Amino acid sequence: MTYPTLSIATDRLRLTVLAAGGPRILGLQLDDGPNLLAETPAARWATPWGEFALLGGHRLWHAPEAFPRSYWPDLAGPEAELIDNGVILRSAVDPGGIAKTIAITLDPTQPRVHLRHTLTNHGLWPVELAPWAITQLAPGGVAILPLHDGQPPANPLAPHRQIALWPYTPLPDPRLHLTADYILIDTSLSGPPAKIGAHSPAGWLAYLHHGVVFLKQVTYHPDQPYPDRNSNLEIYYDQGCTELETLAPLLRLDPGAAVTHDEVWLVAPWSSHIDRGDLFKTLAKMVAELV
């Protein structure tokens, strides 16, 4: 089944989004290159409300994940609204009273995108949740999850790196490489589904594929609790896609209230000759130039 879409573009970037409902970003191209986002037409699950279709690309959920709540079918909803240099995507209100919005703005001069994710509680009761922005990328690349922000630890006698592992993550995993600065995941290798997260002040994730780096950056809130054993950055990977996931802190969202979670994306050519020893510093420098 196909769904109506529309595109927004600059001289460097093109995004394809669902024309209604979702919200979903289905395509991301740099300089007329291949779609960097995963396409997952076969990923579908039965739910009490009908079939949930994943589609691939970028979506907004709210954590913590639970079935069937997280898998409410959301492809029917308001039409997308075009704005200057971008588009606003909206969902219908889900059975729990939550509505999702993604406002997307393209930088007119740089291959950069700003996304504002918003969850609004239209229900009658407060809901504990956290905005959760998930980007599914085409498989076969290398994902990078930074473990710190490059600053000296405040107390060298206290731990300053925290990793969370999901029950289905195999160990040892030949796709997974742990360094002092980052976790590197080579998704060109075959293996079962896996997921890893971290509590990291770095506030960014990266993916290297097709001679391109896709980098997403968020604000880190050091004094607020995050879902999933306090993870603010997560990566899921399997044969069909690699997901870069950022989370906002958990909060109690009262009826009528809304919460936002901003991401900045950068898409740029990437040299395969960069040494792994320089990888963290190179990507961290790119992030610093984003903000």
Rank of each mutant, 00 (worst) to 15 (best):
R276H: 15
Y207V: 03
Y71V: 07
P78F: 02
N232W: 14
L283Q: 03
L208F: 01
G56P: 10
P170G: 05
A202D: 13
R229G: 02
L247A: 09
R175L: 13
W204A: 00
G21V: 08
R14G: 00
V113S: 08
G56N: 04
G240I: 05
E289H: 14
N155M: 05
N230L: 08
T135D: 00
H210D: 14
D173F: 14
I98K: 07
A43G: 01
V259K: 01
H199M: 03
A198E: 01
H221M: 07
S91Y: 02
A43W: 15
D84I: 06
Y220M: 02
D11S: 08
D107W: 09
T260R: 12
H210W: 02
E263C: 13
V218M: 13
D31Q: 10
E234M: 06
A194G: 06
G57T: 10
T242W: 04
N232P: 08
T260D: 12
P108M: 01
A76L: 10
Q29S: 05
R59Q: 13
M1K: 11
R161C: 06
L37P: 00
D32M: 03
A202P: 07
Q136A: 14
A38W: 03
W204P: 00
L6H: 05
L13R: 10
P4D: 07
D238Y: 04
A158Y: 11
A43Y: 12
G50I: 02
P68F: 01
L115W: 13
V287K: 09
E243L: 11
V127K: 10
A103V: 03
L266H: 05
T5M: 03
Q217I: 12
Y226S: 00
A194Q: 00
D228G: 00
T118N: 10
P201H: 01
K195P: 01
L30V: 10
V87N: 10
L124C: 05
L208T: 08
G123S: 14
I102C: 02
R44Y: 06
G191K: 02
R175K: 05
L145K: 03
S190A: 15
A46M: 07
R12H: 14
L157W: 10
P269Y: 03
W61D: 08
A42T: 10
L37I: 05
H177C: 00
L253C: 00
D107K: 12
L124Y: 01
V291H: 04
W61C: 05
A63W: 09
I196K: 03
G86W: 01
P139E: 05
A63I: 06
N121S: 09
A257I: 04
P156N: 14
A99D: 10
E263Y: 12
R14C: 02
L208N: 03
H273I: 09
V291Y: 08
G141L: 02
